[in-house]
Design a protein around this nucleic acid. Structure first.
Lengths: 328, 328
DNA sequence: TTGAAAGCGGTACCAG
DNA sequence: CTGGTACCGCTTTCAA
């Protein structure tokens, strides 16, 4: 790799001058600029980002911490942030935390050691002092605390919509699958649905399924149909759980959506590919990632931020696990 | 952030000494070592990786280039490499290429500017001079050229197994869905299946579906059942395509697996969650990622590499889109 | 066993 | 308009 010195020598100028044309700062005669530019090309010169970072005390890197890229909700998110930061000349430093505080801390630490300019985190511990560094801009994605710069979906509205759509489509006996208690989104979804069900004076049951894993969800689904065989409408805590419910319904011969309607949350890519395809409450994951990236970029560039808490809208995606409204 | 100078001052030694205890190199008196260590703790000192990288002319970063993290096959790969490099103290610099040469080049360039110690790439252009840099170790994942350090699955064997399993399970009229011609894995799978079908003297058709996208695959699936209604066994070019085939079969009322058996490739996570769940040829994606990471780490550490071309085994995952062998 | 100092590849200030 | 140079934080001779 050629260095700035090599270029300076080739162009017969000082490194200061090369730096000037590189950064387009200060005066430099048009002719020498040409010479320098040529030298750069001939030597296939690209500035060493590390040296730059050292001097400036900041890199062009943004850190992203996700629980697990293998969980189908996160790739969309990741892609959204990556596209946006890439478009702004930043690169992504990435780590899976497995929702483990130690891991999270380790990543954050090394991110800082690499002088990242900002971090975007999907974390269960947004209030921890882990993220309490006023040197380093942080935006929380999907999971958050009040007033922290963050991007998340309107989970409560999602819960409400799910309940309303089920009722509108004629479910009389709804069962609510309550997700992991430590996830605020899950709690909000639950609360939204609960509120509507209560208001509407509907009959319903509540079941906890503490995990989003498919295997766990399977057990919950099985239990659900045994405990509440009269259920004709199910609000699952997310699409994975909804998938397990579909499986169980199919297995025991319940007709979907005629005997039982099912609604999920998230709209992960495979929900469309299920059979029957899953009606669900969509979170705009890709856009959420993008918004988070935009926020962090503004913070990095110290631009004024009008809105640092961004709630994204959710929407009902009607597919085949709910009845058509006309046909009820 | 405290610097090495701060520590030196606090411990009343020179920065050289601090550096020595930091890196455990050279002699340093036990007592001063203690003093230094204490000072580091008190100041919450962590070495600046950027400064280190600059001096050493290499970072602790590994670059990963994938076509698109949103494609369900890749998160597993990514997770495999991330886990392995993380365990070895490296961090991941990540980018989506969309199989676009320009993007790929841009990432590679900035990776180099950030002095990554190695890169792992899923690329269609492994032979391009893009990757022809003898300074920088590269390992190709999933897609490769002969003799380049790489990790990939035995696609040909996969194709063979798929064909054999279908025949063993009684399919008489197989249709082969041929994947994108530019992907070597797709070609190999196809060839493997073709060989077996030919050897066995089976009746079969071939259809091209040039894309792995679900929408395109849908069209191919539709065409397939129109053109070859007698088909009773389908080898799809991957699981996404197989999913589309399942959909179409279900839509037109073909019984799976009784009237038509279907086999996919990859074993992406959702294949298990389909209904009926998909029988498929599994690629050990997570392990492939891990192996690639191990390879790059060896290269980085200049350890001897006995095997730089690693072919991973594939396996038949029997689920519900193929008949049971006993029951035929 | 320790410290001084050069230097990694840039940037930016100050002089000229 | 251009060059000299100090410095970013760390590592590594070299000498003491």
């Amino acid at each position: 790799m050629a260095t700035i010195k090599d270029v300076a020598k080739a162009a017969q100028v000082s490194v200061a001058t090369v730096s000037r044309v590189l950064n387009d700062t200060g005066y430099v005669h048009i002719d020498t600029k040409t010479r320098v530019t040529q030298a750069m090309q001939e030597l296939n010169y690209f500035p060493n980002e590390v040296a730059r970072s050292l001097f400036k005390r900041e890199s062009r890197l943004v850190g992203l911490i996700l629980p697990d890229i293998t969980n189908p909700f996160f790739p969309q998110l990741a892609r959204g942030v990556e596209d946006e930061i890439h478009a702004n000349g930043f690169r992504l430093l990435f780590g899976n935390s497995d929702e483990d505080r130690e891991k999270e801390m380790a990543y954050l630490q090394t991110f800082k050691q690499n002088q990242v300019v900002g971090v975007i985190a999907v974390t269960n511990e947004p209030e921890s002092d882990l993220y309490n560094d006023d040197e380093l801009p942080v935006v929380f994605l999907d999971r958050t605390v009040p007033n922290a710069p963050s991007v998340f979906a309107d989970a409560m509205a999602g819960g409400k919509i799910a309940a309303m759509e089920l009722i509108k489509r004629g479910s009389q006996q709804v069962t609510l699958l309550k997700g992991p208690a430590h996830l605020q989104t899950a709690r909000q979804r639950f609360k939204g649905a609960l509120d509507v069900l209560t208001e509407e004076g509907a009959n319903f049951h509540v079941m906890s399924n503490a995990s989003f894993s498919f295997q766990e969800a399977r057990k919950s689904a099985k239990a659900l149909f045994q405990l509440y065989p009269e259920t004709d409408g199910i609000i699952a805590s997310n699409d994975i759980v909804a998938t397990a419910v579909i499986h169980e319904a199919l297995r025991i011969g319940k007709a979907i959506p005629d005997e039982v309607q099912i609604i999920g949350f998230d709209d992960i890519p495979q929900s469309e590919l299920l059979f029957p395809s899953l009606s669900t409450i969509r979170q705009p994951a890709y856009d959420m990632g993008k918004e988070a990236a935009k926020l962090i970029i503004k913070a990095i560039q110290k631009q004024p931020i009008d809105q640092s808490v961004i709630q994204m809208p959710v929407s009902f995606i009607e597919r085949e696990t709910t009845r058509k409204v006309d046909s009820q």
